[in-house]
């Protein structure tokens, strides 16, 4: 907080455009954003196994701030080499152990320190985490059930979300997760998170295990639904295309201990994924990021 700011807000000279993206030469600090902050990291450090032989600092002094854009929310994608601490950051926001609590620094959501987990920060995991003993409908309405929403009301809402996620209410609602394909399971996982209308949605490589075509379809679906639920999304991925397509903003992370090295602003996607991802401006942004990540990976 005490060091001088490298640039005053909105100075264009330190930014440069790469295709669809605009590279900021630094990660924005709280002073540069005008709106209230939905998520803010202040010098956050996470060390695993403190005091033991296998002590390991996964992230060090991570700083970033995400604005609370009313009635819209921002879509933040996080890219970085494997093991740089992306999941650590996400789980710190979610308030999940053992990442939570941070070893140092402050994790703030809407200005308040995160204390444990809550349905205001929904999370979708890469592993299939459908509750095997519940039908699709019971999975989707799990969170509502925990709120004690009356059965009729929550089933109605659940069916609606099943439909919105592109599943068939008639056929699929009463199925068990083991009867579903990977793509369908992730749809269920997303539906059950969105049904709670969280302010923040945390997605840790949710499409990582899907085949390329399903993945593109899921991207389109996600863009559509995200506009509807108006949440701030944190989306971790290893696919640069996915990040540039989905993201309003992309954070690049470097390795050991992980920290955010670069922030890019990306133009919003305005057409379906398979079309969008062939545009030259799109590819320019992708190649720029790919070069950066290659560099990050080669000299950590």
């Amino acid at each position: 907080m005490s060091q001088p700011l490298p640039a005053s807000p909105g100075t264009a000279s330190h930014e440069h455009v790469v295709g669809m993206g605009t590279v900021l030469d630094h990660v924005r600090t709280p002073r540069e954003v005008l709106r209230p902050h939905i998520v803010e990291f202040r010098n956050v450090t996470k060390t695993y196994n403190v005091g033991k032989a296998e002590e390991f600092t996964a992230i060090r002094d991570v700083n970033f701030v995400v604005e609370d854009i009313a009635d819209k929310g921002e879509f933040i994608c996080v890219l970085g080499p494997s093991g740089c601490g992306k999941s650590t950051i996400l789980r710190l926001i979610a308030g999940l152990e053992p990442q939570y609590p941070a070893t140092g620094g402050d994790v703030l959501v809407l200005g308040k320190p995160v204390i444990g987990s809550g349905s205001d920060r929904g999370m979708v995991f890469q592993d299939y985490t459908s509750f095997d003993h519940r039908t699709v409908l019971e999975n989707v309405t799990f969170g509502l059930e925990c709120l004690h929403m009356p059965r009729k009301q929550r089933d109605e809402l659940g069916r609606e979300w099943i439909q919105k996620m592109g599943l068939n209410v008639e056929n699929d609602a009463q199925k068990y997760p083991h009867e579903l394909s990977g793509g369908m399971r992730q749809r269920v996982a997303i539906a059950r998170t969105l049904a709670l209308k969280p302010r923040i949605i945390l997605m840790d490589e949710p499409f990582g295990a899907l085949d390329p075509l399903t993945r593109l379809n899921m991207q389109d679906l996600l863009v559509k639904l995200w506009k509807e639920v108006q949440a701030t999304v944190f989306f971790i991925t290893h696919s640069i295309e996915e990040a540039v397509f989905l993201g309003d903003r992309v954070y690049l992370m470097s390795n050991s201990p992980g920290t955010i090295t670069e922030e890019l602003k990306i133009e919003p996607a305005n057409r379906p994924a398979h079309e969008m991802q062939r545009q030259p401006e799109f590819l320019e942004a992708v190649y720029y990021i790919r070069d950066k990540i290659t560099k990050l990976e080669s000299n950590p």
Binding site: G95, L96, S119, G122, M123, F125, D127, C146
Partner: peptide, 16 residues
């Protein structure tokens, strides 16, 4: 443990 994480992020209490 991922089921516990999932339940927590869906707002379940410890008892739930």
């Amino acid at each position: 443990a991922r089921y516990i994480d999932t339940a927590y992020t869906l707002g379940a209490s410890r008892w739930q």
